[in-house]
Design a protein around this nucleic acid. Sequence first.
DNA 1: CCGACGTCCTGCTAGC
DNA 2: TGCTAGCAGGACGTCG
Length: 272
Amino acid sequence: MPELPEVETVVRDLRPHLAGRRLCTVAAGDRPLRRAFAPEWAERLRRRRVRDVRRRGKWILLDLDAGSLVVHLGMTGQLTIGPAARPLENHTHLRIGLSGGRELRFRDVRRFGSVTLFDQPADLDAFLADRLGPEPWDLTPAEWRAALSATSRPLKAVLLDQAVVAGVGNIYADESLFVAKLPPTLRGCDTTPRQAERLRRAIPEVLETAIDRRGSSIRDYIGGSGDRGSYQREFRVYGRFGEPCLRCQTSIARIRLAGRSTHYCPKCQGEA
DNA sequence: CCGACGTCCTGCTAGC
DNA sequence: TGCTAGCAGGACGTCG
């Protein structure tokens, strides 16, 4: 579910509550996640202290005084902090009691998410470097153009490729393409430098506004304090199949691309 | 090597 | 009303 703005919101919500806290109790469920949570990690995590909470792409990094706990929310993951005594929701896979009496919880209905412990910073760095390209703000015009010219894939597929640019998912790919006025089907290698630059600039523009709104809550997503986002009210194409384009009134189209539902305006995005 | 596609899992809803 | 096919903010393994 969550893309960069949602993950960033969770990190910002959690940081003030987690930084400096000690992990006092760790209780993991036994249902398998995308990556197995090793049972011995529970004992190893106890008494460690949280130094900082960071985000890289869609990954949440809890840096400890030794090692890092790395969380991916998958499609339906929720990482929340609140009173230890709050009602326990189903599909809660991990509970970490903190000094100060609050409890961090990982809940994930579909279990596409994961919680992994890295003891060595070098291992974590390698793990992230293996699968993630630059953050959208660090993507340079030259490397973006190079990535596009090297592939025959459609722009939609390139945007979803975390190794090219980290953090963009299905919603913000569609929204960025609308802002850039480019068809999602346009092949990377057929993109002109001007078009490439429009898209490169559209991505942070869309993401920054979404972060301001605390992300998009369609069904499962909630922030680290349980609050919903509101950017879904500002979607220009995503989820608006058949509705009028806010710019030109043309009916928003929906196709299947890169295995994902893809929304666009046939007129504004140049496929009239 | 690259790119397209299936799979993991549960829950909700549109449509019969 | 009740059932079922299809779909959902992601990542990754496999296959051609």
